[in-house]
Simulated scan of single mutants.
Amino acid sequence: MVSARSHYGPFSAAAAVDEAARARGYAIVSATLAHEDEASLTDALDAFLAQGVDGVVVIAPQQRAHEALRTVSIHVPFISLQWPDTPGDRAVAFDQREGARLATRHLIELGHSRIVHVAGPQDWNEAEERMRGYLEEMSARDLPTSPPVLGDWTADTGYELGTKLLGGKEFTAVFASNDQMALGLMHAAADLGLHVPRDLSIVGFDDIPEAKHFAPPLTTVRQDFAQLGASAIERLIADIEGRVEPAPTEFAAPQLIVRASTDAPR
């Protein structure tokens, strides 16, 4: 069961879960929530149970979907992606905060001290955790922070924010909460006559397949969705088969991928 399937993270997570389940001999029945509320979640669960499913994987990164998940009764084994505080510790998730700290730390170690964060939508857990990671790393290095700039995951918004931020920029680097917004920022920088990374270093998050083909190739944080899907399915099948009690939340470690969009400030 997936909300926001059109976005890279939920889509990739759903594909990874599907592949891992099929590799274990399980068929997948999927549903995309039209709305992230209790009624939509309950309707989807009722439809699944009517088909006799053995277990449920919930991919719902928005806060309202998570709140709905906490209120409904699920009478089969289930596991949630993204939300570590899912009832019963039934979750696997990427360590979003550590990924953001890796991105921010990379910029700091290059010599940047004035770093802006372009965040994702505040009702998304990933956006909130990445913002916290940025703030924690800046605070740990005793560096000043400015309020994160809120985006909506899209390259169009990255471009729009970039044209506003970069016109009178007082910073040397940007950590964007996803690669699409980083792409928009790169476009804005080029239109304003700024060179990446000579005039501005940019780091993204997700390592979408196109990131290595950006101009310049994008430094970003990679999430191993295949690992996430396999871990989720392994825990769910163990619960279905009654082999073990559900383990505590598992965190998949992100990886910093350094490319040509970052350099020391000049």
Score class of each variant (00 low, 15 high):
208 I>S: 15
207 D>Q: 13
217 P>R: 01
216 P>S: 03
193 G>P: 01
206 D>F: 06
213 H>N: 14
194 L>Q: 01
221 V>N: 13
201 S>M: 05
196 V>E: 03
210 E>M: 13
192 L>M: 12
198 R>T: 13
217 P>K: 07
202 I>L: 00
219 T>E: 09
203 V>D: 12
193 G>T: 07
207 D>M: 14
193 G>Y: 12
220 T>K: 06
192 L>R: 10
194 L>D: 00
194 L>F: 10
212 K>F: 09
220 T>I: 08
201 S>K: 01
221 V>M: 13
202 I>T: 12
200 L>F: 09
218 L>Q: 04
221 V>C: 15
204 G>A: 04
205 F>M: 10
204 G>P: 05
205 F>G: 08
220 T>H: 05
213 H>T: 14
192 L>N: 10
196 V>P: 05
208 I>C: 02
193 G>N: 11
216 P>V: 04
209 P>H: 14
197 P>R: 02
212 K>G: 13
206 D>K: 10
201 S>N: 07
221 V>L: 12
215 A>R: 12
219 T>A: 04
196 V>L: 00
218 L>P: 09
211 A>C: 06
204 G>W: 03
195 H>R: 15
214 F>V: 04
198 R>C: 08
197 P>F: 08
221 V>F: 11
196 V>S: 00
212 K>C: 13
216 P>L: 08
217 P>H: 07
208 I>N: 11
198 R>S: 14
208 I>M: 15
220 T>F: 01
199 D>M: 10
192 L>W: 11
193 G>W: 02
199 D>I: 01
194 L>R: 05
221 V>Y: 12
200 L>A: 11
207 D>T: 06
192 L>A: 00
213 H>A: 15
206 D>E: 12
219 T>G: 00
214 F>T: 04
199 D>P: 05
209 P>C: 11
196 V>H: 04
209 P>T: 11
197 P>S: 13
203 V>G: 07
